[in-house]
Write a protein that binds this DNA or RNA. Structure first.
Length: 856
RNA sequence: GCCCGAGUGGCGGAAUGGUAGACGCAGGGGAUUCAAAAUCCCCCGCUGGCAACAGCGUGUCGGUUCGAGUCCGACCUCGGGCACCA
């Protein structure tokens, strides 16, 4: 009786062997090239999910593959451990955020370990460790000194009932998620990192991120949002004192003669000034402020405006007055918070003009068949040539880009404003009115103002005894924690009670992994050896904020002496993986509300899906991202217990390309397990075969060719991040071995190479069959196999023959056949002769080595 | 609303502008078995045809090309992000 494939026995055995040999510990070694693989570290929610399994499996494939290629690999793991869920849990279930968080970390580590990842666990840390956030505070002070930090006013979502600041996700339809109260926008003084000073640099450097996905680079560029335009000031009429001018910014100064109104943000100083003696304006502004702060909320809300008594003079014609409106879609954060509206060439302005009966003045029309604007604004790409009917600079026919350039020059000549470059990117507000975050190490002194905490007093630790049973900032209402003395004058003072945005924590953890226990944020020698991250892997949902903040931090850390110059772009290569999805199973309750069911509770019968063997039928909805609320989740711990880690890893890599979503199916998991069992069986059979099991020389040679083709294919696919195709290559090789008549020794040779090729994906099984077939040492330490080019050569090629672009036949010719010889052979082909019917071909296209096309 | 991406058999997917459907799943047929499980072998885009073969076919509509899943234009549907979720 041959040994069965038992993952539950194999996997712990090899994990213990790796631990005993300390295979994955990373130490700097100047003699070897290094390779730093990093997956985005997890938030410790308490359970790992299939998305983690997929993410870390991909990283592990790269880490193990690079190690086999001779690199000194750094592959660390940590925890993004600050954030709101810990506070929410404490509020809902009692307990302390720290206990909840560290408990979750212990649970998740225990779930992660059985996956057999090649992680150097000695470098593990959590961002809520005082050792980590204390160093973060030290960097904050360095950044403060370097002028990278500023303090200014910012808008927050204010819940007037709970008297607390809400995150955008806590605002649902303009109401607080717990209190249900209408949320207000409120101004608070906050700390900011001056990321907008780096807008041009961050934009320029995107070009050098050659191994990042184009889509991420494009999203970042759009987010930074560089634009050129004209900034000028209208003279106002009827405005309160101090508002004699109204500054506006426009990217389309060429449409200045199409202006029909001016509009300002409800948060604009002029709008605020007008509130004082105009109750209608005060009411309108208040209504506008009863909206979340998110750009999405602003942009999707119904466009509304209110006229004011103020007008402005058109800069080209003192007799031409434009009304000033307050409009809810003008962002105070962008440009000057005021615009001029040109309805003919901006759809939003046009909708506004039609709604409130404002004039629509055409500035340009299509170069051919031009017509005045109706209900659709005419907004062609700026590269398109149009005919100006109301221009004031440049020729009548020009592109939008040329017209903007000409308009800026003309305006500057007339003394109307000046051309400016503007960015959409705003400074990074980091103040959070919450407990479970890194305290901002600043002291507020009545005499000295905001004073940095002394270095020797770091870390400024969070107090343990806090009351989270009521909403609001526990640090702010803590009886004693904020009481301190001024680091400058020694007088009584009060600590800053805001904590930092958790994005700060995740903006430099990759650097900390290079020296995780240091009593400085980083150690230059270690950072110099290990940086940059050679391959970063994570979800595309982080394409903008996390990655942009990290790029900023790398620059700030360089300025403050915590990273070497070469780490200015910390991630050499980025890969964004897709989500794990699953079908959704739903029944209806007596009020027809959906009731969701876990996949493990659904049984498949001949009459479809049911709850239990003969329970009620279940509706099956299309696959969607696994989520607790829809219960379309499978628990990795269960899957590993049932099939083993190798099966979970193999399935996560097969089927779908890594950048796309993958659907978890029970059938797919079964299939993955069956395949691994088959590989195990083939190895066991081969190991059990005697020396008498001789094959033919031809069969041995054919198997060698198939094996070396697989080496080449798998290597290429792993290098190209095409793991699903690498898996397909491995299926093909497995089939070749299974069907081969080669001698046992030749099959063993192939199976050992199969073990090596599978080792990055299914490391435990790979070790098992490697050992079974006499491999030396651990596969985890073996060198990657090299494909023999001589075995990849073929003598002949098959050329498909197309007739008028459709494949009709094919010929086989020696590899280096000359074109004219191929043409002659093609004309002899029966299908070609039939199609030609004696006539000569109109055209004969030969693409050497690829295809032939006969045009008749 | 704005920015970004994705749509190919029953399903997941493969295909430097060059044989559409590799590989896998599901399904069908067969071998083995007292029977089953497991395993092994064969078939498998749609329509017509005994077959040879022909026609159609990569979300929709149009274009470029000897040749388009791939390039260009317009649209439809789904997904990600939108600065306090992480």
């Amino acid at each position: 009786m041959m040994a069965q494939y038992r993952a539950s026995e194999i996997e712990p055995k090899w994990q213990a062997a790796w631990d005993a040999a300390d295979v994955f510990r990373a130490e700097p070694d100047p003699a070897r090239p290094k390779y730093y693989v990093l997956e985005m570290f997890p938030y410790p929610s308490g359970r790992i999910h299939m998305g983690h399994v997929r993410n870390y499996t991909m990283g592990d494939v790269i880490a193990r593959y690079k190690a086999a290629r001779g690199f000194n690999v750094l592959h660390p793991m940590g925890w993004d451990a600050f954030g709101m869920p810990a506070e929410n849990a404490a509020m809902e279930r009692g307990g302390h955020p720290a206990d909840w968080t560290y408990g979750n970390i212990a649970d998740m580590r225990a779930q992660l370990r059985p996956m057999g990842l090649s992680i150097d666990w000695s470098r593990e840390f959590a961002t809520c460790d005082p050792e980590y956030y204390g160093q973060q505070q030290a960097m904050f002070l360095d950044m403060l000194e370097a002028g990278l930090v500023t303090r200014k006013s910012a808008t927050v979502n204010w819940d007037p009932v709970d008297r607390t600041v809400l995150a955008n996700e806590q605002v649902i339809d303009g109401k607080g998620w717990r209190s249900g109260a209408e949320v207000e926008r409120r101004e608070l003084t906050q700390w900011f990192f001056r990321i907008s000073d780096f807008a041009e640099e961050l934009l320029d450097a995107i070009d050098r991120l050659e191994r990042w996905p184009d889509k991420v680079r494009l999203m970042q560029a759009n987010w930074i949002g560089k634009s050129r335009g004209l900034q000028f000031a209208f003279d106002t009429l009827g405005a309160p004192a101090g508002h004699e001018k109204l500054a506006v910014y426009t990217t389309r100064p060429d449409t200045l003669l199409g202006a029909s109104f001016a509009a300002i943000s409800p948060d604009h100083p002029l709008a605020r000034a007008l509130e004082a003696d105009d109750p209608a304006i005060a009411a309108f502004n208040a209504e506008c402020r009863r909206m979340g702060t998110s750009e999405e909320a602003l942009e999707t809300a119904e466009k509304k405006g209110l006229p004011t008594r103020v007008t402005v003079r058109h800069p080209f014609d003192p007799d031409w007055e434009l009304p000033v409106w307050i409009a809810n879609f003008i962002l105070m954060d962008y440009g000057t918070g005021a615009i001029f509206g040109c309805p003919a060439h901006d759809q939003r302005d046009l909708d506004f003009a039609r709604k409130y009966g404002l004039p629509v003045i055409d500035v340009f029309e299509a170069a051919e068949d031009g017509a005045p604007v109706g209900d659709i604004a005419f907004v062609p790409p700026k590269t398109e040539t149009v005919r100006y009917v109301n221009g004031f600079a440049g020729p009548d026919r020009q592109t939008g880009d040329d017209a903007v350039t000409a308009a800026i020059a003309e305006c500057e000549a007339r003394g109307v404003g000046s051309g400016v470059t503007n960015y959409r990117l705003r400074d990074w507000g980091i103040s959070r009115q919450r407990y479970w975050g890194c305290p901002i190490p600043v002291v507020h002194c009545p005499d000295c103002g905001a004073v940095p905490e002394k270095r020797e007093n770091l870390p400024v630790e969070l107090p343990r005894n806090v009351d989270l049973s009521v909403p609001g900032n526990p640090l702010d209402r803590h009886p004693t924690w904020a009481d301190t003395t001024c680091p400058r004058c020694g007088g009584p003072a009060r600590r800053e009670t805001d904590t930092m945005d958790t994005f700060v924590d995740s903006s430099w953890y990759f650097a900390r992994f290079t020296a995780p226990r240091a009593d400085t944020p980083t150690v230059m020698a270690d950072a110099d050896y290990w940086m940059n991250v050679d391959q970063y892997i994570g979800g595309v949902e982080h394409a903008i904020l996390h990655l942009l903040y990290s790029r900023f931090f790398a620059r700030a850390m360089q300025i403050t002496g915590h990273l070497p110059a070469k780490a200015i772009e910390p991630f050499d290569a980025l890969f964004t993986q897709g989500m794990v999805t699953h079908e959704i199973y739903v029944t209806r309750d007596d009020k027809d509300r959906p009731v969701y069911h876990l996949p493990e509770h659904v049984h498949w019968t001949e009459s479809g899906a049911r709850l239990g063997a003969d329970g009620p039928p279940v509706d099956v909805m299309p696959p969607a991202k696994m989520s607790k609320s829809k219960k379309n989740v499978v628990d990795p711990e269960r899957i590993i217990a049932e099939y083993g880690a190798d099966t979970a890893r193999w399935f996560m890599l097969s089927d779908s390309p890594p950048e796309r979503d993958v659907e978890w199916t029970a059938a797919g998991a079964d299939a993955a397990f069956r395949h691994l069992a088959r590989v195990h069986r083939l190895a066991a059979e081969c190991a059990g075969a005697g020396h008498g099991d001789a094959g033919t020389a031809a069969a041995d040679a054919a198997l060698d060719r198939a094996t070396h083709a697989a080496i080449a294919g798998v290597t290429r696919c792993i290098e190209g991040f095409a793991f699903n195709k690498a898996v397909a290559e491995l299926y093909t090789l497995t089939n070749a071995i299974a069907r081969s008549d080669a001698a046992a020794s030749a099959r063993a040779r192939s199976l050992r190479i199969l073990a090596q090729l599978m080792a990055p994906m299914t490391p435990h099984l790979a070790e098992e069959i490697w050992a079974m077939l006499g491999g030396q040492g651990l596969v985890a330490r073996a060198d990657w196999p090299q494909a023999d080019p001589a075995l990849l050569e073929t003598d002949t090629v098959t050329l498909p023959i197309q007739i008028n672009g459709k494949r009709r036949s094919q010929i086989e010719v020696p590899k280096d056949t000359a074109t004219d010889a191929i043409e002659a052979a093609v004309l002899q082909d029966a299908a070609v002769q039939r199609a030609l019917a004696g006539a000569a071909p109109r055209k004969l296209i030969v693409v050497p080595g690829r295809i032939v096309n006969v045009v008749v």
